[in-house]
Amino acid sequence: MADIQLPHGTGAPSAKPFNPWPVVIFIILSILAVLFLAPTVGVLFSSIKTTKEIAFGRLWDFPTSVYWGNFADILSNPSVQGYFVNTLLITVPATVISITLGILNGYVFAKLPFRGSGILFLVIISGMFFPPQVILIPLFRLFNGLHLIDTLWSVIFIHIAMGIPICTLLMRNFFATVPNALREAAILEGASEWQVLTKIALPLSLPALAVLVTLQFTWIWNDFLWPLIFIQSDEKRTVMLGIVNLKGQYSVAWGVQGALSLLASLPTLIVFLFFQKYFIKGMTMGAVKG
């Protein structure tokens, strides 16, 4: 890496040349951090202020007192509990199934290639490059024909399907780094292909799994588009639809929306914190080869 030196006219040979890059990078990062954190802080502030305060334009004032009324409203609202249950009923099975399919696909592509498997892999991966808008109308008609509109199943199916390419890609690439000799050694010890996968390949791929679970869970939990298209009745709504929906019940419901937004982001935060340790464990285990 080339050192960047400022031209300096003093000519003092012992003076260490001033390197501006750490400072520049620090400033850029600070600006970015503020930009990214601002909305979150806004939501946090709005959740602990009264609607009156917000309406008077005091959203960005540092809160002097905490108003818990928004949270109380949310937690006592029976539809909100339904939103959370619905979102969980979609997110957990869709995450588990898409990752399971990704694991099975990835293992076959990485360790058990067959004639044409390379092409098939590309076909599956190309699924990632379809923008959802393109398939929206045909899907709606399909689901309508199958009577899946306004069911949680519709959203579960679409998330499983949309998750397969990325799950397959990530797992295949990670399994490819597990040396073939490990699989062969296990097979000679009497392991079946399934046991090679569950006892050797998967334990060695925990970091990839942790990344995938976090990605999929967050993506599906936070999804707004698909439930918006396929869900119609209030008792089937997900949390993200619910946040927007609160607007209808109250005239200007910033405070309640902020409170629900905060609560809605807790599950993804928990998932992230829980799997974070596996990222690190995976990194220390990284060097598989002897």
């Binding site: 000799a181 490990l182 050694a185 097979i187 010890e189 009497g190 050797i200 060695l204 060097a287 002897g290």
Partner: peptide, 16 residues
């Protein structure tokens, strides 16, 4: 697995 053989690999192939 049916052949009842054992193999020692160049890379040892120990499960890490």
């Amino acid at each position: 697995s049916k052949r009842q053989l054992a193999m020692v690999f160049q890379s040892y192939a120990l499960f890490p």
